[in-house]
Design a protein around this nucleic acid. Structure first.
Length: 530
DNA sequence: AGGTGTGCCT
């Protein structure tokens, strides 16, 4: 390389350090091409790594640049693989790795930290990579070993993960956290917690791993307790920890805790990004504060499909179907692409409001406009929509003609509409076919029994209950959580042990009477509330 | 001569 190139290269690289936008980088890059500086692998590597760290990297652009290079280094290969892994294009990353080997480059410890991440969904390639790691002698290198433990833990292959953990002589907080995460994924709450208590050093990431671990395992109280312990230990909650805690608040109905986190965010100037914003919207909606959920949503600068879907389903759950449908329209006008979960929420909203035509239209646009093939859950919503509206024949036809086997929830929706509209015979027929095919979860039997009850056939009710007892079905008791004065109380159907039981019963009787009065007043009887 | 990475997030 001549002195002239080196000088040009140095000038450009110092300019690069000040670059902030993609167009600035592209300008420098074209300058480098003109001055032939890109034939300097160091300069080229610097450019590519700039793309690698920028979050809005244009992958196809940087890949073209990579392909145009005459001379590549291990660093350049590593960085290019990293770009694809960061963009979740794992297959491309791995085929690039293969090309790297074919071009005669040896992977180093850095290569493996990217390659192992690319293997999280593909265990056979992961095993092959592990073999390579061993062959090249990187297995006991801390970063690589941590990557391997994470890999096995991620597949819930806890024996292998544990073995690697046990042989590790150089465990750090990441090694421990990776293993804890594996026990969480495989549902071993106690083992995970034991490790968490044992680990010599904890940071915000390990705390939030355990907190979100509890959330994933449905242990919401433990999650919130740990979130409190974290602050008592003097650590500030990080982004993921707050998201996990908010999720626990949403499930527990713990509005006070959720509000506390919101206030904490405001006071500390924590940005309302997509993930945290959605977690807040979800928490407020599930804790009954749909208005606050709406206002948080409006404050989010960057609303993605998850944010919209959260609020749509929140509105639907609050009986505000019209607002839910309107939000869905707004989502489309803002060019946010709905996903399959969005459609479940929207169809639910239609179903509750009896909007049959709108529901059918939306169901059709799912595949026609968005290329999302309706799944069994969407058919379930549609059956529910038709059934609730009293269109039993159409609902039955849909169940017959749907392209996949109806699951117990689809049939449950049909059964429910049989009950509501008094078609006891069809209901009975359906339950028999469900039993035959082994799709009779406890809810199906409860529906059948309720159906007989509402047509006053008490002998049949007793019979179904007896059958359930014989089959050892036990319906999970209905349960709801409510927070009063900072304390979460749990109400389980059939449980009379809580304080103030009499007052609660009186209030609920009052509500019942009020509803009955409304129904009688309304004249068209029992079609909607049951 | 000079730069890369691992664990938690709706």
């Amino acid at each position: 390389m001549s002195g002239r190139y080196v000088k040009a290269s140095q000038r450009c690289l110092s300019l690069l350090d000040q670059c902030r936008t993609m167009s600035q980088i592209k300008q420098i890059q074209s300058h480098l091409i003109v001055s032939a500086t890109l034939s300097d692998p160091f300069a080229a590597g610097k450019i590519i790594s700039f793309f690698a760290v920028s979050s809005n990297a244009d992958v196809s652009h940087v890949y073209k640049l990579f392909l145009s290079l005459q001379h590549r280094t291990t660093f350049i290969w590593n960085t290019m693989i990293r770009v694809f892994v960061d963009k979740n294009e794992n297959a491309t990353a791995l085929s690039l790795y293969k090309n790297m080997l074919q071009s005669g480059f040896l992977p180093n410890n850095y290569t493996f930290s990217f390659v192992l991440r690319a293997c999280t969904e593909n265990s056979s390639l992961g095993l092959a990579s592990h073999a390579q790691v061993i062959k090249l002698g990187w297995e006991s290198y801390d970063f690589v070993l941590n990557g391997l433990i994470h890999l096995y833990a991620n597949w819930s292959s806890m024996e292998a993960a544990r073995k690697l953990f046990d042989v590790s002589t150089d465990r750090d907080v990441i090694t421990w956290t990776a293993l804890i995460n594996g026990y969480v994924k495989s549902g071993h709450a106690e083992l995970a917690r034991e490790l968490f208590d044992q680990m010599p050093e904890r940071n915000a990431v390990s705390w939030s791993a355990m907190i979100t671990g509890y959330v994933h395992m449905g242990m919401f109280r433990q999650a919130l307790e740990l979130f409190n312990d974290m602050q008592l230990s003097g650590l500030h909650p990080n982004h993921a920890g707050m998201v996990g805690a908010l999720c626990a608040c949403a499930s527990l109905g713990s509005l006070d805790h959720g509000r506390w986190i919101h206030t904490y965010m405001d006071r500390n100037g924590i940005e309302l990004d997509r993930v945290l914003g959605t977690a807040l919207v979800d928490m407020y909606a599930k804790c009954g504060c749909i208005e606050i959920a709406c206002s948080v949503f409006e404050k989010m600068p960057d609303k993605d499909v998850f944010a919209f879907t959260s609020l749509i389903s929140g509105l639907a759950n609050h009986g505000r179907s019209a607002d839910a449908i309107q939000l869905f329209a707004r989502m489309q006008s803002e060019e946010v692409i709905p996903n399959e979960v969005t459609f479940i929420s929207v169809l639910n909203a239609c179903s509750r409001m009896g909007m049959v035509d709108e529901g059918l239209r939306i169901f059709n646009c799912m595949s026609v406009v968005y290329g999302i093939e309706p799944g069994v859950q969407h058919y379930g919503c549609l059956v529910d929509l038709l059934g609730r509206a009293g269109l039993l024949e159409e609902a039955k036809r849909l169940v017959r003609e749907m392209p996949m086997e109806p699951d117990s929830y689809v049939l449950g929706a049909l059964l429910n509409s049989c009950r509501v509209h008094g078609d006891v015979e069809l209901g009975k027929e359906m339950v028999e076919s469900l039993v035959e095919r082994g799709l009779d979860h406890d809810g199906v039997h409860v529906l059948l029994s309720n159906m007989y009850a509402s047509s006053n056939r008490w002998d049949r009710v007793v019979k179904v209950r007896e059958e359930m007892g014989a089959k050892k079905f036990r319906k999970e008791p209905g349960c709801s959580l409510i927070e009063i004065g900072g304390r979460v109380s749990e109400f389980v159907a059939g449980d009379m042990s809580y304080l103030l039981v009499e007052e609660v019963m009186l209030v609920s009787l009052g509500i019942d009477n009020h509803l009955k009065f409304l129904l009688l007043d309304d004249g068209n009887s029992n079609s909607n509330i049951c």
